[in-house]
Amino acid sequence: MTDIQDAPDLLQLDGVTKIFHLRPMFGRAREVAALRDVNLTIKAGRALAIVGESGSGKSTLGRAVIRLFQLSGGAVRFKGRDIATFHTRQEKLAYLRSVQMVFQDPFAALNPAHTIRHHLQRPLQLHRGLSGEALDKAVRQVLADVEMDAEICIDKYPHELSGGQRQRINLARAIAVGAELVVADEPTSMLDVSIRRSVLDLMRRMKNERAISFLYITHDIATAQYLADDVAIMFGGRVVEWGPPLAIIENPQHPYTRLLLDAVPDPSIRLCGQDGKAFAARADAVREATRGELLDAVEVSPGHFVRQNI
């Protein structure tokens, strides 16, 4: 699904399905299909963006990749091996080292009781077995890698840093262990607008200079276009359209993709009050239609696929 064919596949999602069984305290038990037959590939050193609305299953997909739960069906393959077959401690550790997650909330992801030094020492000790002077040097190195001044921030606590700085520390943790794939779940959505781009730029540099792959989960297709080499549009637990960002943005095929693109704020189009309910009605119609079965994938242009509604 990429235009560079020679890069090896790093991660393959093969018919990934996840059904949650909900047994609420009140009311009947029910099943929620969070992921339904998702097939995607991330090549080494490339970024794949998953774009979808709240509840479309995009975060579940990220969690499936870092093995937070067992799949109901299908397989996640890392360098050709099914991650469910990693049984020994060594295999599991090696996988966790290679695949790191950065969460949406930079305030919750760091322990408020520990300094930045501690946060970065732990992964280096656990995964790379460093100690003493080598450890201190490595901590300073990863801080420099994410453009943080070690002298200023190394002994600070998370609450003394801004959201953007904290998100840099989270990315530093991923670099520290030598991650090959970073699963970034809305890493900029809780950051102030004025620093969003700098965090995106850092991710872009990690990708370009260190060949770290990204699974970038977002609801903002503009940032997806900025960072990713491929975009997959999710709705209702399924991928409805995927391909290079420009192909999708210029020539959206699925009605949900069109809806999504039309809703992106564009200052050159003024909103008027004439059709107050029209957009909502269209959105409801598209959602309703997309909930049903989908047709098989059709290639629209090289690498650009769509699964139309029946």
């Binding site: 709240s54 999504l260 809703a263 909103l271 009050g273 959105a283």
Partner: peptide
């Protein structure tokens, strides 16, 4: 806190209400 599609739905609604 909302995704772009819902955001647009609500803004259109606000505009219509404002006009009224």
């Amino acid at each position: 806190a909302l995704d772009v599609v819902v955001q647009r739905e609500i803004l259109q609604e606000i505009m219509a209400l404002k006009q009224r």
